[in-house]
Nucleic acid binder design. Structure first.
Lengths: 217, 217
DNA sequence: TTGTCAAGAATGAATGTTCGTTTTAAGTTT
DNA sequence: AAACTTAAAACGAACATTCATTCTTGACAA
């Protein structure tokens, strides 16, 4: 390279190389963690899966906890992006279609976690949820993201209500939370009981949408 | 000694005492595990919480794994019982009511896990899900239980369909899975975002039930 | 009732192992 | 050869589990 000044500490390898190494570690770790959880996976498991030595990995992540957090935030980001992009569609499709879009994005979407196969990702989500219960910083991050998602979905539901598509005597954010819950539950089922098509949730919502009434309360 | 019959293994303390000790260990362990997860909880944490020594605990449970499995199966049982009893109600109430019953049972129900407070139980459920991904024996148990629940709920949905309450061009078991997913997702939300009333899910379903149409497909 | 005793129940310090992390030495690139 | 990265050995801490020991219980003799 024709750089004239070389400062002490100047990187010897390109930024792309550094980024690729980081991603190589994250991908290997994600595979391990999806398989065995964070705390039953040793750093040596991660090293082997990533094909690197301890020194290498500890150059990119100061500790196992930092690695776990990086993975968890990747997962948060992927899921959150799926929820947000589906809520932004105009005009808003009916709930069954919206939830189908979310799941499509989560499982196939713009490859934040490209390296994980379709069954790996839901497993990782469950591990991240469990870890979130132990790590107040992760919990705070998740809550912040969830608030944004819930607001977007509440707005979506209010559009249904204003257009007369949905009764407006139920709080919009209760409906929003329920839709989010359906997706979360479906992800849990994918992890626990194996893969199944997105149409399961779509059909399920269509069935529910055809039930008249419900108690006024 | 002129004792005529002395059986080896003759109980020195009452069966109630043994049962109470076992429960004391399970309750302490459940509190620890709900707080910190299975693998970030040491046996010494469990011992302290239960107020017993290592030897005492290892008399009742051969290993940490055996303790984890006992806890997990308690959790499975509690959730499964809630799903089953709600599905058995005749005549079947509308979906919003049925799901409300399930949640009521899970959070307040016949105290299988009496010792855990309301926020503790959903946390424990998430930890058990995560552990289930690592333990094929737990996974098999969960799948067996889930099949029974899904069958019961499919039957319930078929009753809706036969009575004309729900369109019958969607597979009943897809609707059943969706209802179960909504409950699972709600439990996850309880653990991750804090408590909220059962009426959130009830209202949410009522809102959805009032949406007409949905694509035929 | 009271005292005795064998066996079950409980203890907690000790054990060997495994973990995350650091250090050190060899290698690679420019 | 300088600048920097990687590999591998090594370390202390923490872990699950064991075991020699002490305490407790309840049947039975008197």
């Amino acid at each position: 390279m024709n750089v004239r000044f070389k400062f002490a500490g100047m990187a010897r390898v390109s930024q792309e190389h550094l980024d690729a190494r980081r991603r190589q570690i994250l991908d290997g770790a994600a595979r391990c963690f999806a398989r065995n959880g964070f705390h039953a996976t040793s750093m040596q498991d991660v090293l082997k899966e990533a094909g690197l030595s301890a020194g290498a990995v500890y150059r990119y992540f100061r500790s196992k906890e930092e690695l776990i957090r990086a993975i968890a935030e990747d997962v948060f980001g992927t899921v959150r992006a799926a929820f947000e992009s589906a809520a932004r569609e105009t005009p808003p499709p009916l709930p069954d279609v919206v939830l189908g879009r979310v799941l499509g994005q989560v499982f196939l979407g713009p490859q934040a976690m490209a390296d994980l196969d379709r069954e790996g990702f839901p497993r990782l989500v469950l591990q991240v949820w469990a870890e979130t219960l132990r790590d107040e910083e992760l919990a705070a991050t998740l809550r912040r993201g969830y608030e944004v998602v819930r607001d977007a979905w509440t707005t979506l539901v209010q559009q249904y209500q204003r257009s007369g598509l949905m009764r407006d005597d139920v709080p919009a954010d209760h409906v929003a939370r329920t839709l989010v819950a359906a997706v979360q539950g479906f992800i849990a089922q994918q992890a626990l009981f194996g893969e199944s098509g997105i149409e399961v949730l779509e059909d399920g919502l269509r069935g529910l949408m055809s039930v008249p009434g419900g108690n006024i309360g």
